[in-house]
């Protein structure tokens, strides 16, 4: 079979091995964090962090150039990590202060991040084209050092994102109740912010800063189309994330297309397919009477016919005036 031969060649290529491993890790991690972001209605936070990370890349570059390092971009990724964490933490602080300004703060991050990045890369003696690899991903150039960093950061992300799932769910689902339970709400919110920042920087190599958020959000959108539970949404999202990352990246081995764009387009295609197929999936559920089988709330006999339909709608029943 030619296909298997081709797959064999691909898997035998050390460059491709590193790239696939990075894609695998990012594909699992990004949707885990994305699930929390979507639940807190912060779907765009990843984008905001991505833009700030660009400034971090340029800043790292500038520092590297100033220090006369051999390769100018040696500090680019560390710079991105620092800038992303700081930016994400700032957003979290702003969100806590007042709800309305969170949106604006995010917008300012978008503009400031791009402008700062372009400005700093110029000062570092580079040009905007140096930023392209970070904006659109450069997974084909993943080195062993990069891979090590990816493995470590993904381990941290998964440790926090899965290990603290119940607590992070509680805080993301109902912050007031979490506070009233004495949970360390501030620390948990910060944990999500920091982990989101780390996700952006590891995913930067695979899909690029401009598309990072898609990898965090689109699989979650698919997950919630097909499940009812938070845990399963996260699981489905991760499976989808890994699949599109590996398939998308493999395609670039044979076709000369951008890995990041391919992965994101694949994810969106899966979303569209699932959204279209959803009515079929739903109809296959066993048709049962969803109404609870309990006595009527009111004396139906004394109620004008047609105004009551039993206890189906709990809200308002108790308050209505049984005349």
């Amino acid at each position: 079979m030619i296909l298997f031969d081709e797959l064999g060649y691909m898997l035998g290529d050390p460059l491709m091995q590193r790239a696939l491993l990075a894609a695998l890790l990012v594909g699992v991690s990004a949707p885990v964090v994305g699930t929390y972001l979507v639940q807190r209605r912060l779907a765009l936070l990843g984008d905001g962090i991505g833009h700030v990370a660009l400034t971090g890349v340029a800043l790292g570059w500038l520092i590297g150039a100033t220090m006369g390092l051999a390769s100018a971009d040696a500090l680019a990724v560390p710079g991105a990590v620092v800038a992303a964490v700081v930016g994400s933490a700032l957003i979290e602080v702003v969100r806590r202060r007042g709800r309305t300004s969170g949106d604006l703060a995010l917008a300012i991050m978008f503009y400031g991040g791009i402008a700062g990045g372009v400005l700093l890369i110029g000062l570092a003696g580079g040009s905007s084209s140096n930023l392209m690899a970070y904006l659109f991903g450069s997974i084909s150039t993943v080195t062993s050092t990069d891979l090590l960093l990816t493995v470590v950061l993904c381990a941290v992300i998964l440790l926090v994102g899965l290990g603290l799932r119940a607590a992070l769910f509680s805080v993301s689902h109902d912050e007031e109740f979490a506070t009233a339970s004495g949970l360390p709400v501030w620390a948990l919110n910060m944990a999500v912010a920091v982990v989101a920042a780390l996700t952006v920087t590891v995913a930067m190599r695979v899909v690029g800063l401009l598309l990072v958020s898609a990898l965090m959000i689109v699989p979650v959108a698919i997950g919630q189309l097909v499940t009812h539970s938070f845990r399963r949404t996260m699981t489905v999202a991760s499976v989808v994330g890994v699949t599109v990352c590996l398939v998308g990246l493999s395609l670039t081995y044979w076709y000369d297309v951008s890995p990041g764009a391919t992965i994101v387009v694949l994810a969106i295609a899966v979303y569209a397919a699932v959204a279209l197929a959803r009515p079929l999936l739903i109809r296959r559920r066993p048709a049962g009477d969803p109404h609870p089988d309990i006595p009527d709330d009111v004396e139906v006999a004394t109620t004008p016919a047609g105004t009551r339909t039993g206890t189906r709608s709990g809200a308002g029943d108790a308050e209505e005036c049984p005349e």
Binding site: V38, Q39, F169, H173, V220, Q224, S229, F230, T233
Partner: peptide
């Protein structure tokens, strides 16, 4: 209603 579904058991 949050955007990610959650079951009664999870809540």
């Amino acid at each position: 209603g949050t955007t990610v579904p959650s079951t009664a058991g999870e809540v």
